[in-house]
Amino acid sequence: MTKFLLAVHVLAAIVAIGPVAVAASMFPAVLRRGDVAVLRSLNRICRVYAAVGVAVPFFGLATAGSLGVLGDTWLIISIALTAVAAVVLVLLVLPQQHRILADGVAVGRLAMYTGLFNLLWAAVTVLMIVRPGSTTGA
């Protein structure tokens, strides 16, 4: 069961978080070009895949419970970083994208918030691979 949960967790991360990271990163560049149709599509991708992305921590916690690592420091840090990434996406990136689409007003910090979101997910990915204190020898 652990292998199944881990596989679903990793697949959910690839399928859900990857598109959000790419679409959110493309948004500022497309904004400079002024292509509103593409901006709407990128925003829709971000919104839909953000909702699907809820599966990532759900299956991650199930996997961690199955592995018995729920109290490990690396996992707690990963959970905290994931929560911060979700807050950045939901409270900063998506609302600014929405404001741009609604008002046509460019928000200067959107690229920075998007970069922060991506950096947080990169840190989580590294922690998931390295797992300090792991007994796998990696």
Rank of each mutant, 00 (worst) to 15 (best):
M1V: 14
M1T: 10
T2V: 10
T2W: 08
F4R: 08
L5G: 02
L6A: 06
A7M: 12
V8G: 00
H9N: 02
H9C: 00
A12N: 07
A13C: 03
I14A: 15
V15P: 00
V15S: 04
A16T: 11
I17F: 03
I17M: 09
G18E: 06
G18Y: 01
G18F: 06
V20E: 03
V22N: 05
A23T: 12
S25R: 09
S25A: 15
M26K: 15
M26A: 14
P28W: 13
V30Q: 09
A37S: 10
L39M: 12
R40V: 00
L42Y: 07
L42M: 07
N43G: 10
N43L: 05
R44M: 09
C46S: 15
V48D: 00
Y49L: 06
Y49H: 15
A50Y: 11
A51Y: 10
V52L: 14
G53C: 05
G53Q: 04
A55I: 08
P57G: 08
F59N: 06
F59P: 05
G60D: 05
G60F: 04
L61T: 07
L61E: 09
A62C: 10
A64H: 04
S66K: 11
L67G: 08
L67Q: 07
V69A: 08
L70I: 15
L70G: 11
G71H: 11
G71A: 15
W74R: 03
W74Y: 10
I77R: 05
S78P: 04
I79G: 12
I79L: 14
I79N: 02
L81K: 05
A86P: 02
A86D: 01
V87P: 01
V87A: 14
V90W: 12
V90H: 11
L91T: 14
L92R: 14
L92D: 01
V93E: 01
P95G: 04
Q96C: 03
Q97A: 03
Q97G: 04
H98E: 14
R99G: 01
I100Q: 12
L101T: 08
A102R: 15
V105A: 14
V105R: 14
A106H: 08
L110I: 06
G115W: 04
L116F: 05
F117N: 09
N118C: 15
N118T: 09
N118E: 04
L120S: 02
W121T: 00
A122C: 12
L127K: 06
L127C: 06
I129A: 11
I129W: 13
R131P: 02
P132H: 05
G133L: 07
S134L: 07
S134W: 12
T136D: 13
T136K: 10
G137L: 12
A138M: 11
